[in-house]
Amino acid sequence: MIKAVIFDMDGVIVNSEAIYEQADKEIFKHYGINLSDEELQKYIGVNLLDIWTDLLSKYQLKDQYSDYQVEDFIEEHVHSHYEVLSESDELKLMPGIKDWFEYFKANNYKMIIASSSYAPIIELIYQKFGLDKYMEGYVDGNSVEKGKPEPEIFLKAAEKLQLKAEECLVIEDSEHGITAANKAGMKSIGFARNTDYNQDLSSADILIKEFNQQNLAKLNL
């Protein structure tokens, strides 16, 4: 029996993915890293530690930036994301998601965020959109040793809610996120929004393209 809903944040609760994209390109370019759109898509849903660990290995930046630790690259990246989000007029809740929040709240389902983003970013979104009215906190990407596609972040979210994995439903828009939900033993909804992001969500239990009443009825909760 499902008792809680675990939400990814970027691209599910808010339309932040496109806002991040340009900031990411600028950061990577600053360090001489030129990634194709296809390469960038592979990092969707992945936490910054795993991204920068991979990039530092591939591009041998450790020699050029010998006085840098991986945490320094991450800190700059988080700061950049925070700035673009806080200054953006485009940042909005996903259409229909608030109605879903209201439904889950009215029917006594617990809700929590499990996002690869770091705490300052989640806090920014949390406060801007008053998510404390619905969510019982969050688990951020910096609080787990192994990010998505590993299940740790979702298992921690369930633990925080004092629930079993099988009592949780995950809503995700990335292939890594759906894989993590499956590994955690949780039911999953793949949010295949109409974008250019090429994510394989076929292993999700349910696929949706909109947060509307028709799709909410499909959950059969």
Rank of each mutant, 00 (worst) to 15 (best):
A4S: 09
G11T: 02
G11Q: 03
V12S: 05
N15P: 04
N15F: 08
S16G: 04
A18Y: 03
E26T: 10
E26D: 15
I27T: 05
F28D: 05
K29Q: 15
Y31L: 07
N34H: 14
N34R: 06
L35F: 12
L35V: 12
S36I: 05
S36G: 06
L40W: 04
Q41A: 14
Y43R: 10
G45Y: 01
G45I: 01
V46C: 15
V46R: 12
D50I: 12
W52Q: 08
S57M: 11
K58G: 05
Q60H: 12
Q60K: 14
Y65R: 08
Y68K: 12
E71I: 14
F73V: 02
H77R: 14
V78C: 07
E83N: 11
V84G: 00
S86R: 13
E87T: 15
S88A: 14
L91P: 08
L93C: 06
M94V: 10
P95W: 13
P95S: 13
I97H: 08
F101M: 09
E102S: 14
E102H: 09
N107H: 15
Y109P: 01
K110G: 02
M111L: 04
I112T: 06
I113N: 02
A114N: 09
S116R: 04
S116L: 00
S116G: 15
P120A: 09
L124W: 12
Y126I: 01
Y126E: 12
Q127E: 15
G130F: 04
G130T: 02
L131M: 00
D132N: 09
G137S: 03
Y138A: 05
N142I: 02
S143W: 07
S143P: 06
V144K: 04
E145K: 13
K146W: 10
K148I: 10
P149I: 12
P149V: 12
P149T: 14
E152Y: 11
E152C: 10
F154G: 01
L155E: 05
L155W: 00
K156P: 01
A157E: 00
K160R: 13
L163S: 12
L163G: 09
A165K: 13
A165L: 12
A165R: 10
E166S: 13
E167Y: 10
C168N: 06
L169Q: 05
V170F: 06
D173N: 15
S174E: 00
S174T: 12
G177I: 00
A180Q: 03
A180C: 04
K187N: 03
K187S: 11
G190M: 06
F191V: 00
A192W: 09
A192Q: 14
A192R: 13
D196Y: 14
D196S: 15
N198M: 13
Q199T: 05
D200A: 07
D200H: 11
A204D: 00
A204G: 01
A204S: 13
I208G: 04
K209M: 08
K209C: 05
F211M: 06
N212D: 15
Q214H: 13
N215D: 11
N215Q: 12
L216E: 00
L219Y: 04
L221K: 01
L221N: 08
